[in-house]
Design a protein around this nucleic acid. Structure first.
Length: 778
DNA sequence: TGTGAGTTGATTTTT
DNA sequence: TCAACTCACA
């Protein structure tokens, strides 16, 4: 098969560097491409597929597996321009498995019309399983049980093989709940996300002939983001590459950020051991970022131990120094960034789409949304309540799910009384009991509602009406999807309820439901012919939030660093680089997790092409409490001497600014943020130069004065309001700052502290027994 | 059975 | 902060 490259291939190979070319022209045998950020990985993969096709390998023998739909789409469109008319299967692991499972469902105890449950559906089933076992959750949450089960599935540990690790309370619970949960899923003819992988892995393991057949069918397999594969994915790919080990994987251990989802870094670190005669290609030249950005990234990631060393380099220009900014508060952070963006756009230097703001957790997006709105800058958020997660959409889809798979427990529970039709909680649990007792589905139990004990006549009639309605919509099960959705909306009364509602939100819901109709229509056009309901449901189940991101629109992008993987932007702001957030508090105990957090920041940094700013706030409101923030320890690992720091006083100081600012964050007695805003004087604080300058002066004094103030207070016999008097939301006055309102209280006794927001928008913390803070009007 | 007020409790990342 | 859950009442 391996014919050498010819001059015919010049168009394909000419634009490539030698290492890239080496990877592209590798045809048979395992191939490991270690691709640093911005090293042209997608280009290599697509060019290689085009090259394989030119060598006469049929398109149907090639499969490209990606992590996200977005990545698959990107690959598809790139390949389309290289090798038009050729349809190579590209998609996510989950989609690939869903498709296989459709075909071989019976081998794992499912019917081919199985449902794919999303996280919310799965959670409902899990709760039911927990209840069934009669477990009182005291120290564990359904969340943690779900995580343990997910972990087990990704590690290919079935419900009957689960052995709890000793000493952990949760283990025993999982051991009991996992089999019940799995039984329920099978009874409902449903799978969760993890099952898609686990079932297929089991399928391949237990059916050698089928494995061989599929190995033969998919002779050339490419896996993108290999560093993020888990054991199940590894097993699947491995099983399909025994007779034809033409497995090409690309990845970067330094960009592995899904350990919490079971990704196993060993998969890539030990690829060379797993597959003999591996061809290894390293792509280390970066075409994306400036030298200064790349150096920052490199220095940071050097602090990780568990990695393959590599040296990133670029021919790109040096570029501006990376900025490291400290802000007094999150509000200042958002405001300043929005202002810089607004300014760059107004001057015509930049367009909104040139900018991206990254944060660790979605909850941090609000400040930035608000600030961008105030500056009338268009933006898009990758996350939020994604379309298919909205209640009204899930409701309507649940009808479709139940039509497609009448055994689905989650779908039944969701719609049986949506919209309200007089079927209450007790009736439903009686139906559930009846279903469990007689081993029938909930729909069938509902059919027998008349004979179920304890269900009164009124309720039984309501249930009968529901069943009749369900049977009516089932009549159109094989119609085009748009027609099914239309019938559901009409027959269920869902549309009527929304139309007659006064609630404005319901009008929005109605619009969303109409949008779903449009979706269905588009789907029908793409899939002519009837009976496509199942495929429509599969598509909707496997789309992710990140897929909604619009590449083309001219907007500022807001997203988590996880969502940013695989993207690039001219200017990037990474915000809230604070301990507890980055690294996240749940990762701080474990050095391996800290390394993953470091990689996450590495991913964020390496998205930037021309400019990068890292920032943190000294006070942050989180979960409704204002607390001092400590800069992320990762920031201290960066070469700060070559970065632009926001604190202009730094140069004058002999002590490193760092320790001091940390100290300041912890020392509330100063009564101020002790933040040097001098660096902002030019652009930022112009809107209100007076309060700012005053604040700066105050900073210098209060730190020293607190004690003296206390002394003076004693001498003068000034009466302080007792700390106990202060209440949340109370209006207060301060001799220096004027009128304000208490936004948070913390601590007890002499340490009792209050956060006060003043008229100028600033927030300050006071130790109440020290500060001359009085209730307003006294 | 449905609704609304009030309380509590928990807060990451995503196919 | 905010969503989920409880509980009382219509």
């Amino acid at each position: 098969m391996d014919t050498p490259a010819t001059s015919r291939d010049a168009d394909l190979l000419a634009p490539l560097t030698p290492p890239q070319r080496e990877a592209v022209t590798h045809v048979d045998g395992p191939l490991l491409i270690l691709a640093g950020p911005g090293s042209g990985k997608t280009r290599v993969v697509t060019h290689r597929i085009a090259y394989l096709l030119r060598r006469g390998i049929p398109a149907r023998s090639i499969v490209a597996l990606t992590f996200t739909n977005k990545a698959a789409d990107e690959m598809k469109s790139r390949l389309a321009s290289l090798a038009p008319q050729q349809s190579v299967w590209m998609g996510t692991f989950h989609r690939f498995c869903a498709r296989l499972l459709r075909q071989y469902a019976s081998l794992v105890g499912l019917a081919e019309n199985y449902s794919i449950y999303d996280v919310a559906d799965s959670r409902e089933i899990l709760k039911a399983a927990i209840e069934e076992e009669g477990i009182e959750l005291t120290h564990v949450t359904p969340e943690s049980i779900a995580h343990a089960i997910s972990w087990a599935k990704n590690s290919l540990i079935g419900p009957d093989d689960y052995v709890p690790s000793r000493g952990r309370q949760i283990g025993g619970i999982v051991e009991r709940v996992y089999p019940k949960y799995q039984k329920r899923l099978l009874a409902a003819n449903a799978v969760d996300f993890d099952d898609l992988l686990m079932h297929v892995a089991a399928l391949l393991k237990e059916n050698p002939e089928l494995r061989q057949q599929l190995d033969e069918k998919y002779r050339y397999i490419l896996v993108d983001e290999y560093q993020d594969t888990n054991l199940a994915q590894y097993a699947i790919v491995r099983a399909l590459s025994i007779d034809h080990p033409n497995l090409a994987v690309t990845g970067d251990p330094d960009q592995s950020i899904y350990g919490w989802r079971g990704a196993n870094l060993s998969n890539i670190l030990e690829f060379e051991k797993d597959f003999p005669n591996v061809k290894v290609v390293r792509l280390e030249q970066n075409y994306r970022s400036t030298k200064s950005i790349l150096r920052i990234a490199d220095e940071l990631i050097e602090h990780n131990v568990r990695r393959k060393k590599k040296h990133l380099f670029t021919d790109n220009p040096e570029g501006d120094p990376v900025r490291l900014y400290a802000y007094p508060s999150q509000r200042d952070e958002a405001e300043h960034i929005a202002m810089m963006i607004a300014e760059a756009i107004r001057s015509g230097r930049r367009r909104p789409r040139d900018f991206a703001v990254f944060y660790r957790i979605n909850a941090l997006s609000r400040q930035f949304e608000q600030a961008l709105r105030e500056h009338v800058i268009p933006y898009q958020i990758v996350n939020g309540l994604e379309f298919y997660q909205r209640k009204e959409i899930k409701d309507v889809l649940a009808y479709l799910h139940l039509i497609n798979n009448p055994r689905s427990e989650a779908a039944f529970l969701r719609i049986v009384n949506t919209p309200p039709r007089g079927i209450g909680k007790s009736t439903i649990s009686r139906l559930q009991a009846h279903a469990a007792q007689h081993g029938v589905s909930l729909v069938d139990a509902a059919r027998q509602a008349g004979i179920v004990p304890d269900i009164n006549k009124k309720s039984a009639i309501a249930v009968a009406r529901f069943v009749a309605m369900f049977d009516r919509v089932c009549l159109v099960a094989h119609a085009p999807v748009e027609e099914i959705v239309g019938t559901v909306l009409a027959e269920s009364g869902y549309r009527e309820v929304l139309e007659n509602s006064e609630d404005e939100e319901d009008q929005e819901r109605l619009a969303n439901v109409e949008e779903l109709l449009t979706d269905a229509r588009e789907f029908d056009m793409r899939h002519p012919g009837d009976g496509q309901l199942e495929q429509f449901l599969e598509e909707t189940a496997l789309v992710a939030d990140t897929d909604a991101w619009e590449t083309e629109s001219d907007k500022v992008s807001l997203m988590t660093m996880h969502a940013a993987k695989g993207l690039e932007f001219p200017i990037v702001f990474i915000v809230a680089c604070e301990q507890g957030l980055l690294p996240h508090e749940r990762s701080m105990q474990d050095e391996e997790k800290v390394e993953e957090e470091r990689r996450l920041l590495f991913v964020g940094i390496t998205r930037a092409q021309q400019e990068l700013q890292l920032s943190y706030a000294q006070y942050r409101m989180f979960r409704g409490v204002l607390a001092p923030a400590i800069p992320s320890p990762f920031l201290m690992e960066l070469p700060r001497q070559e970065m632009e720091l926001s604190d202009s006083a730094t140069a004058r100081r002999t002590t490193p600014d760092w320790e001091e600012s940390q100290l300041a964050s912890g020392e509330e007695e100063k009564g101020d943020t002790s933040f040097d805003v001098a660096a902002f004087d030019d652009d930022y604080s112009q809107e209100s130069p007076e309060p700012r300058r005053k604040k700066k002066a105050v900073t210098k004094v209060t730190g020293v004065v607190t004690a003296a103030e206390l002394l003076a207070e004693q001498e003068n016999g000034v009466k302080r309001t007792p700390p106990g008097m202060f209440k949340h939301g109370m209006h207060v006055t301060h001799p220096q700052y004027g009128a304000g309102q208490i936004v948070a209280l913390s601590g007890e006794g002499p340490k009792r502290r209050a956060s006060v927001r003043f008229g100028d928008g600033s927030e300050r913390k006071f130790v109440l027994i020290h500060a001359d803070l009085r209730p307003a009007g006294e």
